[in-house]
Design a protein around this nucleic acid. Structure first.
Lengths: 353, 353
DNA sequence: ACTAATTTCGTGTACGTTACCGTTAACCAA
DNA sequence: TTGGTTAACGGTAACGTACACGAAATTAGT
């Protein structure tokens, strides 16, 4: 009934109804000190009744508050360009929230070098950021860093991989186990009932290995749960150069006749290259990630399926979550699992990372 | 060099440099009349040099401009809840741009009733909206409406289906042909080299049929291009009630032993129901859309694959495109094809429409 | 009861734009 | 010359919020 005026209720209206000045209203809105419990209650009640929504434009215009976020992810390397996508998402988010007074400063580390991770964290800590987005790939070193952030009450979001149990704002990334499970589901469609499947892990660092193991676990469990008679074999390849991978694959493929090869990460292109060079046909190949090299082999049918989990969106939503949490005081879903996308020769053109 | 002051350049600074008042600067910014060519050029030059970006917050705060958008899509029916998703996306977009002075008014029509479509368009036209989002399902009637909008210079965006050649802002939706093509690609993986495939169209309205035919075309062409020896059969079912569908299916399935059934729209759940009730096993089933009923049969393995094209995002991006075009004067991609997502029992949990 | 300290509150200005109103000057017709 | 018309521009009050400053009211200390 009482809204005959032009729609908008603001601090002015609230102040009028409460018989105080807008200054006082402002104090309770931004819960600053200097207002008695009594008037505070009165004002809150009115705010409640009016369902007052502060005008975000006026707020931003008047505020000179600034926030600074840090991001810490692997640098994109020649070996794998995977991290170009999350970085891209980060940059997009950064440009979107720039106008809201948020500055984003990126830090990087070398995936194959724990020391470089420590270097970056050492640079980040003294700068007292208001929020941090990170890919906690090195578990041990990450935990130390996380502890330091917790002490300073700096909200933290993880992308791409999680360290469960460590308190932080949220995790945004794949459900690794389930993505392995899905891969097995697809593998299961591909060939006759009883098949020989080779699982290939290609990775240097033991921590990343951990990452791959969860996928493998999902992959294996699928067949266990479905009581299949498939034969699963695994090889670990700990050098990522082609000659070494070539040798290992030759060695393994000589042992048996496989129907499906499942590569647990984006290195699947290297295996595809091997297939192509050695004229291996009839083996279905499944791997990970929407990368240029992988798409190349998807197009020429060497790779059959790629599993992809929106790396760009991980970066984007990661930063946005910090923003929503810190600026809009929204509460954030603790575990945000990315969709598990299935990419083939016939739909990659329309895929958006 | 010249920016020693605190970062922000605004109309005031521009006015100072041009020796005019901010009023004049405002006029050239919003290209209104009332400023000489000479001073206009001078001001534009300064704007260029300073790379002036107007402060969106101040702009919104001071502006009392209002825009009204209309949306016209099918009402969600019991038969298929597909349109709940686009509507959802529309509502989400509407709430996001509400603060920017944009009001969104939804209109609906009955998919099985051309007259209801005409009724809605008749209501829309006199209201002089600033932009319209629509699903142009009835081609003939739509074209008349489009013409009226063009005459009034009202920007139009299409979602879900396109009427190529008719000028409008953009189309956001599936590439139907390609989604059929992909379905064939998947079907091709599912069973032995030489298979019998049944294509099922279930639809009342002839115009929607057109929609389905494009998928069928993609589906067929895949096999043609790949020189397969598969045998493709098609049935059209023009009544959507279960008894009728049941009868038609029984009739058809008695004729032959099929390996794969491809349903060209979201009615796949009905076919799945038939499979379940008649204890039909061993036939792979592929269909469309992330609907509750379909997911049910996906879970219990009656349906093998669902193709889905982010219906919610279609609505969301549709409205946003109008906003970007009209408010931010961004130029919009004419054809925005949705990703073609493959949903199975093992990844539907993480799918986001 | 008087001062000092502290809490509570009101006022004014700033943020960058928009939009309107008013002013100037230039031009043309009578 | 005068009066009227109009193009070109200046000035300024909003818009709703943040924040600093200072006034007023309350409490504490003697």
């Amino acid at each position: 009934m009482e809204k005959k005026n032009s729609g908008t209720v603001g601090v002015k209206e609230i102040a009028r109804l409460a018989n105080v000045s807008i200054g006082t209203v402002d104090r309770v809105l931004n819960n600053r000190v200097g207002v008695s419990e009594k008037t505070k209650a009165k004002i809150l009640k009115i705010i409640e009744e009016l369902d007052y929504q502060p005008n975000i434009f006026a707020r931003r215009l008047a505020s000179k508050k600034k926030l600074r976020f840090a991001t810490l992810i692997p640098q994109v390397s020649d070996e794998t360009k995977y991290w170009a996508a999350p970085l891209n998402g980060i940059q997009q988010a950064a440009s979107e929230i720039k106008d809201f007074g948020i500055e984003v400063i990126p830090f990087f580390f070398d995936q194959n070098n724990r020391a470089s991770f420590l270097e970056s964290t050492a640079k980040i800590i003294p700068q007292d950021f208001d929020g941090i987005l990170m890919a906690p790939m090195f578990e041990e070193e990450s935990i130390v860093f996380i502890q330091q952030c917790n002490d300073r009450k700096i909200p933290l979001v993880f992308i791409n991989s999680d360290i469960p149990g460590y308190n932080n704002l949220c995790y945004i990334g794949p459900n690794l186990y389930q993505s392995g499970f899905l891969s097995a589901h697809i593998a299961n469609y591909l060939t006759p009932a009883s098949k020989k499947i080779l699982i290939v892990n290609i990775s240097k660092e033991i921590d990343l290995h951990h990452h791959l193991l969860r996928k493998e676990e999902g992959f294996r469990n699928y067949f266990e749960q479905n009581g299949s008679k498939n034969q699963l074999t695994k090889i670990d390849i700990q050098q990522t150069d082609y000659p070494h991978i070539e040798q290992k694959l030759s060695q393994q493929l000589a042992k048996d006749q496989y129907n499906v090869v499942f590569v647990t990460n984006s290195r699947v292109a290297t295996v595809a290259k091997y297939f192509e060079e050695h004229k291996i046909e009839g083996i279905k190949l499944i791997g990970y990630d929407f990368l240029e090299d992988n798409i190349h082999y998807l197009k020429n049918k060497t790779i059959d399926f790629l599993i992809c989990q929106k790396p760009q969106e991980q970066g984007y939503r990661g930063l946005m979550s910090l923003y929503y949490h810190l600026v809009l005081h929204a509460n954030i879903e603790k575990e945000q699992f990315m969709p598990i996308d299935i990419i083939t020769k016939e739909n990659y053109q329309y895929y958006s990372n």
